[in-house]
Design a protein around this nucleic acid. Structure first.
Lengths: 235, 235
DNA sequence: TGCGGCTTAATTGTATACAATCTAGAATTC
DNA sequence: GAATTCTAGATTGTATACAATTAAGCCGCA
């Protein structure tokens, strides 16, 4: 009678699940930069051993969402102004060409997906869930990279967008994030039209616009527990 | 009397050492694509536990030097023709601009380092150590990225060059690798001269040239033990 | 009161042990 | 003789145990 007894405890990789959960929390700004990520603590939360937590943390360290200091532990990464600048420079280098490629390849189904993303983003904003809106906004860019059908570059873009989330958490100065919606909408339109040139230019100006909303002045690392800040001399 | 008693058994991360050793072996083509990398086996070689071997393998998997199949184990990655093409497309996108930037920033010391790289490469070639020569050739590109002083993009380039080594192992068709030397030499000259335009163009044509030396026709994965090949139906 | 060294607790790094899964070979059947 | 199922060995996934390092608190002392 028990065709499928129970949804199964571990259908897939436990490590991946923990890593995804942590990444989501970071993307949605529930975990602030410099937050300490203790192995035992996380292990208890997700009911897994330190072994898998460590693997997840190392995985996140590879995309620079967390920083691991030997014998000290893992912390949510806290990009310096310089790193922040570099992330957006790299995006400006990669994404416009990706948008162009997407415009040349997008299927009606792809356009649908993009529009759905925007709709969900609006929903999240209306619900006051800024974290979720920000995450969706990032995934919009990832979706475009996917459509462009260049896995290698897509991966790079994915990590850049992940890091962008941290940059925004630290250096965003504009109040409203709504401004993006217009840019995204126009971008979808040009991709739907197959207007490569326009898509490339819109993506470029969109990124310039995003960048201009950052205040990259050097600010002392605002650790959640101020201890480090107080006992750190240089850096 | 024992100011520094002994070189110290583990001055740094054991995981990193294992990962570096494996990466070097792959870069120098001592480990062919699709080679099985058993955890116990590697652990015995380097006298470390599976824990650190696993961490090293996962680290290498992140840069796609190895591929991990769940419950199956780790294998030296074997890029498909498509992946190979993408790797070089990405390099063509990133490296010319990086070379330009390097030309605008290089110090005399940097030039010295680059020339030293070329010299060492020649030495390795004369010694018949093609693996080492190839590795040095790759590190030459990494050095240029370092000079460009863009850490984020440099990291991307580093992984691309690592993967290039695998691509070359699988798809290289030209006999001599010497052709590169001229290109590298001219590149250094333009960087030393601060000729940004020239550096960018030289890097571009160099990559085009490299790409033209590949034969990306689909070839069935030549696993070292043919078993997989025989019992695999599709892909 | 403030600084410095020492002791202890907590946390991470590594190794080992156990459980789950896969691979290979042998026995069995057609 | 070929194919298939079953069993035994080997390999990976995860958890736990121990070692090493770091962080915190306490005491003493100037």
């Amino acid at each position: 009678m028990q065709a499928q007894p129970i949804p199964k405890a571990k259908p897939q990789d436990a490590t991946q699940k923990v890593a995804d959960a942590l990444a989501l929390a970071i993307h949605e700004h529930r975990l602030a930069p410099s937050t300490k990520l203790g192995e035992d603590e996380i292990g208890e939360i997700y009911n897994v051993s330190r072994t898998v937590v460590r693997a997840a943390l190392q995985s996140l360290a590879h995309v620079q969402l967390v920083e691991i200091q030997r014998n000290k532990g893992a912390f949510v990464a806290s990009p310096t102004p310089r790193e922040a600048r570099e992330v957006f420079e790299a995006r400006a280098l990669l994404e416009p060409r990706t948008a162009r490629s997407a415009a040349s390849r997008a299927t009606p189904r792809d356009i649908e997906i993009l529009k759905d993303h925007i709709a969900q983003e609006h929903l999240a904003l209306d619900a006051g869930d800024n974290g979720r809106a920000l995450n969706l906004s990032g995934r919009f860019h990832i979706e475009i990279a996917r459509i462009a059908d260049q896995d290698t570059i897509s991966q790079f873009i994915e990590t850049l967008i992940a890091r962008s989330s941290l940059v925004i958490a630290l250096y965003w100065r504009r109040e409203s994030a709504l401004c993006e919606s217009h840019a995204h909408h126009a971008l979808v339109q040009s991709i739907a039209d197959g207007d490569e040139q326009n898509a490339e230019e819109l993506m470029h100006s969109h990124l310039v616009d995003l960048n201009s909303a950052l205040d990259l002045r050097d600010r002392p690392v605002q650790a959640q527990n101020l201890r480090e800040l107080l006992q750190t001399r240089d850096q």
